[in-house]
């Protein structure tokens, strides 16, 4: 038994591995949407958009949150629990801020009279793609909230860093994904 366990510990933790597969899967969804975007942007009747400034603020926010997340993970590993708690809290707050900023971004686009209906254009794709991205961030925020609450109220007996590492990886993923999507829209939209 000992041998079996040792061998399993040498491999990547199954949860982390599962996350990586999930990331591949999520990427495929966005790949589907962005390739649809590319195909369609070559058709007639396409309408372009001007990117609202809010999306720049949200980019700064999510980049900052990635940094705090990484710092939180480091403090957890060093068992600096107090520092870990407020860093994870800060990450959570930044995550929520990101979503709020996205909302304002959508609103300012909407006010520019870029709505759902009518002929095809980058705006329609933006709502769908950024919207789905925001949903994935919401998922991350919920995970952070759970970890945050556990850090405060739960008695952490197992000093396993796996859940925090999984959350951190996911968080960096949605961050990088956001930057890629933004660059994609700026380059092609």
């Amino acid at each position: 038994m000992e041998a079996v366990m040792n061998q399993q510990q040498k491999r990547m933790h199954p949860h982390k591995f599962t996350l990586w597969v999930a990331i591949a899967s999520i990427l495929m969804m966005f790949a589907g949407l962005t390739s649809a975007f590319i195909v369609k942007s070559n058709l007639t009747g396409w309408r372009n958009i001007v990117m609202p400034d809010f999306f720049w603020f949200s980019t700064a926010t999510i980049l900052a949150s990635s940094l705090t997340m990484q710092m939180a993970l480091r403090s957890f590993r060093q068992r600096a629990m107090d520092q870990y708690r407020w860093l994870i809290g800060l990450t959570f707050v930044l995550g929520v801020t990101f979503i709020v900023l996205q909302w304002f971004g959508f609103k300012s686009l909407w006010d520019q009279n870029i709505k759902f209906n009518g002929s095809a254009g980058a705006g329609q794709f933006l709502y769908v793609i950024f919207g789905l991205h925001a949903l994935h961030v919401v998922g991350g925020v919920i995970a952070l909230l759970v970890i945050f609450l556990k850090a405060f109220f739960g008695k952490i007996k197992l000093y396993s860093s796996v859940p925090v590492e999984v959350a951190a990886t996911y968080w960096h993923f949605v961050d990088i994904l956001w930057v890629c999507l933004l660059v994609f829209f700026l380059a092609i939209g």
Binding site: V21, A24, S25, M28, M29, G32, V128, L132
Partner: peptide
């Protein structure tokens, strides 16, 4: 499944 179902999902969302 993991690589192709998400693409269907994106098609269905649209």
């Amino acid at each position: 499944g993991v690589l192709s179902f998400p693409v269907l999902l994106s098609g269905l969302i649209l």
